[in-house]
Design a binder for these strands. Sequence first.
DNA 1: AAAACAATTTTGGGCAAGCAAAGTTAATTG
DNA 2: CAATTAACTTTGCTTGCCCAAAATTGTTTT
Lengths: 223, 223
Amino acid sequence: MASRTIENYLKQIYLSRPADETQWLTMGKLSMAVGVTPGTATSMVRAISDAHLVEYEPRAGVRLTPAGEQLALHVLRRHRLIELLLVKVLGLDWSEVHAEAEELEHVVSDRLLARIDEILHHPAFDPHGDPIPTAGGVVRRQDCCTVLDCPLDSPTRIARILDQSAEFLQYVNVCGLLPGAEISVASRNHQAQTVEVMVIKSGEKQALTLSFAVAEKFFVQTT
Amino acid sequence: MASRTIENYLKQIYLSRPADETQWLTMGKLSMAVGVTPGTATSMVRAISDAHLVEYEPRAGVRLTPAGEQLALHVLRRHRLIELLLVKVLGLDWSEVHAEAEELEHVVSDRLLARIDEILHHPAFDPHGDPIPTAGGVVRRQDCCTVLDCPLDSPTRIARILDQSAEFLQYVNVCGLLPGAEISVASRNHQAQTVEVMVIKSGEKQALTLSFAVAEKFFVQTT
DNA sequence: AAAACAATTTTGGGCAAGCAAAGTTAATTG
DNA sequence: CAATTAACTTTGCTTGCCCAAAATTGTTTT
Ligand SMILES: [Mn+2]
Ligand SMILES: [Mn+2]
Ligand SMILES: [Mn+2]
Ligand SMILES: [Mn+2]
């Protein structure tokens, strides 16, 4: 059994892996993601590599083996199912569940997880719109664009938000930009680096301005 | 914050404390309860005593300070509320929830615990009939007798079972001796050390024989 | 090509928990 | 009382995980 430390490393290696599959994740990035000093990450990765859960190339970086990826996806599945349970059944606010799940993901048994999955009717997405890997370790990929690059003036639906920080999610809540919300992008200003978004908030249409950096965090799906 | 190890020690010191308040809990008993060697218990208790959570008297034993007791009761509250949640909301069998709660009790936040308490309508007892300490750390004491010493031939109700092992609880399940079940004690045989119990199992009355040792595990309340 | 820089690895050390086995103490027994 | 025994404590060692700071390496810059 992998320790909770190792589970956290594997999960972060998965989440922080570079888009280009041939690339390695550097120790600097990993140590930041896990929240330890670079030296600690190096020696931990050495150990995890001895267990054949990652490949490690000194001065290049780290990459999950198939076994390591399965384990990472299992942790991610636990994390996201727990988040959804906390929102749907326990009634916590979606801005607080990430921190909570960060701990719970390491102690929930397979049996309990199966019950949670049943109660939620085998959901495909967590409260932030992140896909929940299947019990078999498969991630159903949804290709969609962001508020930054979707077509203008067409009605779309927010599908996913790429930020787990409680403060940001509370702001998102206030704006009504939650997953499922219908919006359309009115315009983009490349000089000011801002996007103007129309959102239906408690019945009436409202305009909202976001920076490019923030717009990029919102994935949308054309309806 | 107390580590999960310390939380476990405090909880076991509370649960294993001798009935006589003036007595100390010996290191032997404690090390058995926690599942470590006696030497480990001794040095751990020394450390916890430095934190003023217990009093430790070499060669006598250990005893909780008021601060330590509050912490222990908090852990116990988490444990028992979680057990009830797992049974009532998640639909786990009551024989499996103890092991599950043993881990979860250390990672559930105050906020989540408050939600659980609300959803369950501030329950007073867990699935085994054990009292749930209040948020203020008060244990509501119910004085009742056991199947070993209750009056004969009077209808009573099972209130509490003093054994958390899954196998035993599954047997209890089969016999219909769960908390809430109506029973009456027909006779006791002091030579054979057995008790004959009448229990209403799926409509019809059934007779059941238990040893003194097992009878003692069932607390009953006269109805 | 040399110097400077940034990223990474190595070294040395710390803390929390644990075990095994040796040493101590206190109670029990002959 | 002396000897034995059982319970407890001490000692020495291990493992997992972490940090700070020094050393190394690969890449830019000058
Ligand atoms: Mn985690
Ligand atoms: Mn999420
Ligand atoms: Mn526990
Ligand atoms: Mn219980």
